[in-house]
Design a binder for these strands. Structure first.
Length: 838
DNA sequence: AGCACGCCGACT
DNA sequence: GTCGGCGTGCTC
């Protein structure tokens, strides 16, 4: 029969639609699913969908493409569900993800994993419950002990997941038992969605609408409450704060229950009023972030700042990226703020990247005072719920300015006008594990370009790559070399460790000069920062008799001694063990510590300056969410005289009372076996020195070294970055180091030494054959030959800088790795590709 | 990556 | 015999 209503159906109804879905799995492919007629009109790029992947797993995927091309070799599974009414990811982001996957040689799924807060990635877990027909007294089959235990536990709980069973039963046996019980019809197994994001709510009350009409009703209500003083009081408190008659909207908003209880109303009398129908109780969704008022509306730029801003504008007219080199204390913040304000006024969004640690400091507070609620903060220690809220905030336009860590490049911006990367030289912008191994500065520049926005890189000590681009005109370059308010640069002194040692003046790792300076500072009641870039008490223990050194069982490194916990720890895999009482090789009890970490420095200082209050800031003391904050607040409040720390203390700290900075062992930074050692030393020492002295006070910096003759010290002291750069670059050019070439590092990992080595050699040969301008080095055993029981080999590639060569080579590289992995000998070998490694 | 299937050793 | 090890193949 003819369909009389055919013309009333949506035009798409008859189409066979398919969608290519990005799934959070490390498989270099998109997956094509079919789009059912019910969602055909709603689906689009960037929507989240639920799909079945494999036999039972259900995953959240992102739609990358919608098309009508049916897959030829397999039957597409249907999309189970469309999760949103609007796309959570925009087309620009998909493009950005795709650039990142290809530039950093990883898969879209890995990028998606890094990009989406896990609160937006729903997945399922297998849950188990008793079969409704199952009868304990009459099971119908013989049961063994473990089955009985499992069924009994299940009888007590409504449902359980597989992990709970794993805890219940020793080993990995639960899986088998669940399977057999399922076969016997005793239990049911099903997949259920783990909902991760839950919005925060607030309990509120308002006056029931029947009383809001006329005064008289309220009068009679008070009559009725006569004698019930507490209830009367609640009602009065409420009416005091909400003018029910003048402004009925106010009553609709109601009052948080907490506000009333804070004012002395008892929860029970409020509840009684709710039960009587006098008050309505209701819940509202609230933000996890406190509202911050704008308190700083005006700030003025000094003449050098204004000039720098002008320069930046001028460069932006023809260049997308500008490098702003401003020495510590030169007042980059105000320049940023002014630029941000301009861009926000034009209606575009702004992203400002900061290294993790700098996010806890006054810069963020300052920005918050200037920009108030328009600004969102994205910190790596945020909970997942908080992350989802920032994401939604950007999506829905609540925030148009985000200040955040490297992963904030993934937030769903749709109209960026400006990206600022502060402390752009920071190596923590590079993610190493897991993939995508991206550099947030470089990714931000690309993101900015995709938005046709401008990028400003700010630092006192530019990364060579950035300075190089500024020198050759790719970036605009602006320099700001006057300290704000003309504060003077700190005075540097070198302290010769070997000289003091010879004269027996070195006490507990401190030279005489350093000790005297610390004492003077303490006497003036000012604060000291001591920098030692190694955590723990001592890098290792050693037997006095035979030289035995405790090693990690899983890695090719010695164990670090942590005195505070009385244990030995591996900094590579986290392995821990108790400190041995005697040498495991010869039995001698004479075991001594070698080398110096922050814990030991802290101890030495307390011996040398018993009256000083000392604190330590390193990975071990700042693990908790507010760990940094607590230590910094304490230091800022003047409760600490000496703060010892690793590179964490090199940034963000801005305290007026710090007048001395001590570097315990500059050689450790300087003689690191890496071509960037010099660059890093210059940056780190300059950074930490910048903490000394502010405003009217001239700070002092003491650098302890065994090689005071090193040229780099002269350059650091005079602040001559350009000269340092020039000399260092000559060397980089000669030996083909970045920025003259592009580096790609490949780490080959396998549990068997030989297999790892052979795979690495084969790969090297395959890579050498690729027709591109490059040098392939290695494979060489990694500096740490074994980590977590896997043997590591490294291949380094120095690649021509041109974009075409890079793209071609990376494509080939991925192909060759796939080729090698097809060989079943190398199936379990992992190949980590790290583009632009640090 | 996970997960299922299948083929082999060491215990009742 | 069977329980449980992990090598191998696959995911739209």
């Amino acid at each position: 029969m003819e369909d009389l209503f055919a013309d009333q159906y949506p035009a798409t109804a008859s189409k066979n639609l398919f969608a290519d879905i990005i799934l959070p799995v490390p498989i270099p492919r998109w997956f094509t699913y079919s789009v059912g007629p019910d969602i055909q009109d709603h689906i689009g790029i960037g929507y989240r969908v639920m799909v079945q992947f494999g036999k039972k797993k259900i995953l959240t995927g992102i739609v990358a493409k919608v098309h009508q091309k049916a897959p030829e070799v397999y039957q597409a599974k249907p999309i189970l569900d469309l999760l949103d009414d609007f796309p959570v990811v925009n087309a620009l982001q998909i493009k950005f993800w795709s650039w990142m996957a290809s530039y950093y040689c990883c898969h879209m799924g890995e990028v998606m994993n890094a990009a989406l807060p896990s609160g937006l990635k729903l997945s399922t877990e297998s849950r188990v419950q008793l079969h409704p027909d199952f009868d304990f007294d009459n099971p119908g089959f013989p049961m063994d002990e473990r089955e009985l235990l499992l069924l009994e536990t299940l009888g007590k709980n409504e449902e359980m997941n597989v992990e709970q069973f794993d805890q219940l039963l020793p080993g990995k046996t639960s899986h088998k038992i669940i399977k057999s019980l399922l076969g016997k019809g005793a239990i049911l197994v099903y997949e259920s969605v783990k909902e991760k994001y839950s919005p925060k709510t607030e309990q509120r009350v308002r006056l029931a609408s029947k009383y809001t009409g006329e005064d008289s009703l309220l009068q009679s209500l008070f009559e009725a409450l006569k004698g019930k003083e507490k209830q009367e009081a609640v009602l009065l408190k409420y009416l005091q704060q909400v003018d029910v008659f003048r402004d009925s909207g106010k009553n609709t908003e109601g009052l948080p229950k907490k506000v009333l209880t804070d004012q002395g109303c008892s929860a029970s009398s409020i509840d009684t009023l709710i039960k009587k129908g006098v008050l309505d109780a209701f819940k509202v969704l609230i933000s996890r972030f406190d509202s911050v008022p704008m308190t700083e509306r005006e700030f003025t730029l000094s003449p050098p700042q204004a000039a720098a801003l002008e320069d930046i504008h001028r460069h932006f007219e023809e260049k997308n990226t500008v490098l702003l080199q401003g020495i510590t204390g030169s007042g980059k913040t105000e320049i940023y703020a002014q630029l941000i304000r301009e861009v926000l006024q034009s209606g575009s969004q702004v992203l400002m990247l900061l290294p993790e640690i700098a996010l806890t400091t006054h810069l963020v507070n300052r920005m918050q005072q200037i920009f108030g609620d328009k600004m969102g903060v994205f910190h790596s220690k945020y909970s997942d719920n908080e992350r989802v809220e920032v994401w939604q905030g950007v999506l829905k336009g609540r925030y148009n300015f985000i200040i955040g860590v490297r992963s904030s490049v993934f937030l769903p911006f749709d109209s960026l006008g400006l990206v600022i990367v502060d402390e752009e030289h920071e190596s923590s912008y590079k993610q190493y594990d897991p993939a995508p191994r991206f550099h947030a500065r470089d990714a931000a520049i690309m993101l900015s370009w995709m938005h046709q926005a401008k990028t400003l890189l700010g630092t006192a000590t530019p990364a060579f790559e950035s300075y190089f681009n500024a020198q050759n005109g790719k970036y605009g370059f602006v320099k700001l070399d006057q300290r704000y308010g003309n504060a003077e640069l700190p005075h540097f002194r070198l302290a010769d460790i070997l000289q003091d040692k010879k004269k027996n003046l070195l006490k507990l790792d401190f030279t005489r000069l350093m000790r005297e300076k610390i004492q003077e500072t303490l006497n003036r009641q000012e604060q000291v920062l001591i920098f030692q870039n190694r955590r723990g008490y001592a890098p290792y223990l050693s037997c006095d008799e035979c030289g035995w050194i405790p090693q990690c069982e899983h890695c090719d490194v010695s164990l670090t001694y942590h005195q505070y916990q009385e244990e030995l720890r591996c900094h590579y895999c986290g392995f821990k063990e108790k400190v041995p009482v005697s040498c495991q090789a010869c039995g001698s009890q004479k075991i001594t510590t070698i080398g110096t970490g922050t814990e030991r420095i802290e101890e030495s200082l307390s011996l040398l300056f018993p009256e000083a209050r000392i604190a330590r800031m390193d990975l071990d003391t700042t693990r908790s969410k507010y760990g940094y904050q607590r230590i910094l607040d304490n230091f800022g409040a003047g409760n600490v005289d000496i703060l010892v720390g690793t590179q964490m203390i090199t940034k963000g700290l801005d305290f007026d009372k710090v007048s001395l900075v001590g570097i315990v062992d500059a050689d450790r930074i300087l003689f690191y076996p890496d071509f960037r050692a010099g660059e890093r030393a210059f940056q780190q020492i300059t950074q930490v020195a910048g903490r000394a002295g502010r405003r009217d006070k001239i700070g002092e910096v003491i650098i302890q070294t065994r090689r005071p003759d090193q040229l780099i010290f002269k350059q650091i002291i005079s602040g001559d970055y350009a000269d340092f750069y020039r000399l260092e670059m000559a060397e980089r050019k000669q030996f083909f180091y970045p920025p003259f070439v592009k580096n790609i590092k490949i780490v080959v990992k396998h549990k068997d030494f030989k297999t790892s080595e052979i795979a690495a050699k084969k790969l090297k040969n395959l890579l050498t054959d690729i027709p591109a301008k490059k040098i392939v080095l290695g494979p060489e055993k990694s500096i740490i030959g074994k980590i977590k029981n896997l043997y590591l080999f490294e291949i380094w590639i120095k690649l021509d800088r041109s974009g075409n060569v890079q793209q071609f080579f990376k494509q080939q590289l991925m192909g060759r790795i796939a080729e090698l992995q097809a060989d079943k000998r190398f199936r379990a070998v992992r190949f980590l590709v790290d583009v632009d490694p640090y």
